[in-house]
């Protein structure tokens, strides 16, 4: 099977590839957004905990 027939998909490439592309795009987007949120909240939590410790160390 050569590359062009694979891309052409029997003339239906214009429907098949956008289906796969859109699926990948949406799933990667929600994964990326969720991981970014976890990372951000984790960093913020560390920062606040550190602040908390500093405050408690004060006489």
């Amino acid at each position: 099977m050569d590359f062009n027939t694979f891309i052409d998909m029997g003339g239906y490439g214009a429907f098949i590839w956008p289906s796969y592309g859109l699926s990948a795009l949406v799933l990667v987007a929600i994964l990326w957004q969720s991981r970014a949120r976890l990372k951000r909240s984790g960093a913020e939590l560390e920062r606040l905990r550190h602040k908390d410790d500093v405050q408690e160390d004060r006489p």
Binding site: L31, S34, R35, R37, L38, S41, G42, E44, L45, L48, R49, K51, D52, Q55
Partner: peptide
């Protein structure tokens, strides 16, 4: 799982902020 962990972080952040 990732989102649940982020949610729990957010709840803790809120509690810490309140305390501070």
């Amino acid at each position: 799982f990732v989102r649940v962990r982020a949610e729990f972080n957010d709840a803790r952040i809120q509690a810490l902020r309140l305390r501070q």
